[in-house]
Amino acid sequence: MEAFFERERSPAQQWARAVTIVVLAVLYSLGCWFVFSTTAGNWGLVWNYRMTFLSGWVLTITLAAAALVLSTLIGVIAAIARRSPFLPLRYSAVLYIETIRGLPLIVLVLAGFYGVASALRWNDRLTAGVFILSLFSGAYIAEIIRAGIESIAKSQWDSARAIGLTPLQTYRFVVFPQVLRQSLPPLAGQFSSIIKDSSLLSIIGITELTFSAQQVASATYSTLACYLPLGVCYLLLTIPVSLWTKWLESRVRYEN
């Protein structure tokens, strides 16, 4: 049994590694086979709708990319406002960050779209959806950036002041370049979250990946054959991002 334990001083045996992987693969396959055989999906029928999936997938990528850019912008502004000596600004940022982080995204999407956006006659689902998603993600990014800013040593702020930089110049030339390097791994992780969270925009009728899969499912009456590829499509996006995050983390580690 000891062979199956990986410890710092005594690594696991090679054969134990192989046995573990093989057994897990067999169990996993058996599970899948069991599910597939009982709910015989209509794979051929669903294949006809592959372009619907593809266009949904592309829209998901587009939404996530747009939301990433916008939420980074919102997050940076909120993080700076959160540290502002000007109280109305600081408290507004706290209010924003804490409210958003305390709400489930689905509530934000429903209230934001059917409540706020429609009151403002903002009827374009796509831009409203991206904005709501960015507002949500921005609050988390604000906290990532804030942690990054707080990790900058006091001596750096002192040195920046001593050479006569203004606060804005200090952020631009001294703080953000260092924050960015440190915060890139958690930001990449947040990107992965945005991709997954964008699925909730399906409830306001944006034809992204999840919405497309639901449409195909109701058209073909085959659920598993739709939702399984749906999961795979998300994994195709999130696994590379996750690997990229790990690579970024290792790079930051080696630099220090």
């Binding site: 040593a153 001596s155 002192d158 040195s159 920046a160 001593a162 370049p177 260092q178 390097r181």
Partner: peptide, 10 residues
């Protein structure tokens, strides 16, 4: 000039 960490590391 301070004791240490005057320079910007990036």
């Amino acid at each position: 000039v301070f004791q240490a960490y005057n320079l910007f590391p990036h």
